[in-house]
């Protein structure tokens, strides 16, 4: 009897493991009508040191040092936009995500969401730009801090 419980527990653990494996961006990686830009941590490590240092007010080096990946999804396909909006609604309901900021400017809606890894570490920043003819989602994953967000805000 105990053996059955053990096997059921393992199956459930594996199911939750699979359920958590995908993020918002992962779903749209291979979708038609969605343009994807993916920059990995390995690539960020290869950024030219001199350029990073001379990037002026934008402290790229400081910001990317805590990043694991950058993903940009762009679509003007109406079906994909509908699907994305549906998933964003799910994110709003998700207790793991917090709304960082909402900006409304004419026809453009910009929402920022964060997912905390721990009280001081931000595991994910999601920026959703909803324009009349286009939808852009930018996802940063890594171990970011409030200082990184501040640095982004103060960059020129």
């Amino acid at each position: 009897m105990n053996l059955k419980y053990l096997i059921i527990t393992i199956i459930m653990a594996l199911s939750s493991f699979f359920a958590q494996a995908g993020t918002f961006a992962d779903k749209y990686m291979d979708q038609k009508g969605v343009t994807v830009v993916y920059i990995s941590k390995a690539m960020m490590k290869m950024f030219p040191a001199k350029k990073v240092a001379l990037a002026g007010d934008m402290n790229v080096g400081s910001i990317v040092s805590n990043l694991e990946s950058i993903i940009v999804l762009t679509t003007n396909n109406s079906e994909m936009r509908k699907e994305m909006k549906k998933d964003i609604l799910e994110i709003r309901k998700d207790k793991n995500y917090e709304t960082l900021m909402k900006v409304r400017d004419d026809d453009t809606k910009v929402d920022f969401y964060t997912r905390m890894k721990s009280p001081d570490v931000i595991g994910e920043i999601l920026m959703v730009v909803d324009e009349p003819d286009e939808c852009v989602v930018i996802q940063f994953t890594g171990n970011m801090t409030a200082e990184d967000i501040e640095a982004l805000m103060n960059s020129k």
């Binding site: 934008m58 900021m101 900006v103 910009v110 920026m127 730009v129 960059s155």
Partner: peptide, 8 residues
């Protein structure tokens, strides 16, 4: 991203 944050 910075531009949108600053807009807010």
């Amino acid at each position: 991203v910075s531009k949108n944050m600053q807009a807010g």
